[in-house]
Amino acid sequence: MSQAEHPNTASGPRPFRRAAAGQSGQEPGEAPARPHARRAAPDPDIYREGGSKANQQDAATVQATGLSAASTRTSWTWRFLLAGLALGATALAARLVDNAIASATSGSALGLLTAGALGLLGLALACLIVGEFVSLARLRNRSRIRTMVDQAGSTRDDAQAEKALAALTALHAKRPDLAWSLAQYQEAAADIPDAADKLIVYERLVLGPLDEACVAEIRTIARRAAVLTAFAPNPILDAVFVLWLNLSAIRRVAHMQGLRPGAAASWALLRRTILAMVAAGGMEALGDMMPAAVAGSIVRTVARRVGEGAVNGILTIRIGVAALEATRPMPFAARERPSVTALARQTVGS
């Protein structure tokens, strides 16, 4: 059988047709593995015009400031400090364990009880540590998927987009609340030949409702923060309330995104959130004037406390949106990042 003589011709199956029913037609010739044709990446931005330029820059800045791997590096001072603390704790524990073992080996009833308690304690500790590692790994996995989606979106590489899609569906497949969205996505995806485009539809159909729910939750908490600040009897209590509400906003968003962060993951998440907020902050220079404008006008008309409440509410919105960005498995591309200014207006400005 003659094969492709020209070096530029894709070697592949020879033209072939047969009735679909399965009658044998003429057999095609022998053919080696066939390389897929590829072309240079076209302008990937044409489908992203919906998102404003600022948003894309946001995403870029978040990348640059290192929401991903780079930022998780800890300084050496901290490491030594932590190592020291851990050593101290271990020494203390070892002593306790020594005592306990001594009493356990004595064979008395109390000794057995102590041994049992120690065993349970050890098991609990192990569970806790494993849990921490798992939740940290989940958080890292988010960043990994986000980077993957981002790259697949900009290179329009089908294989990579396919991989990102598999990771996303694995993440969301077990959630009953997303079953409907996923079914809708599956139906839509049947019409779409390119995996990179499927990512766009995935973001709109599956992440869209989730975003909306998160934003609604953030607004509720922000409203609570605003009201609490306005009525808090003293400034310290007010600060404690707001801190607690802001942390709960982060936790709630993480929960809704399917994360159950333990202590270490919560800490990591807080750092990512703050980084995302800082990155977004630069872009929202205009938005920065928003609290002042909202608060200012209210200060003049109603009272100073209410104005402060508005400021705190806006802070909560900001933190909530940043947490959303940090926990979302995809970057904001087909959907716009929720605008803090618009949310602030709807929530506390009116």
Partner: peptide
């Protein structure tokens, strides 16, 4: 019918 259209040329020169 089921059809294999054959190998699409990779470049115009091919």
């Amino acid at each position: 019918e089921e059809v294999l259209p054959g190998a699409l040329p990779l470049t115009l020169e091919a």
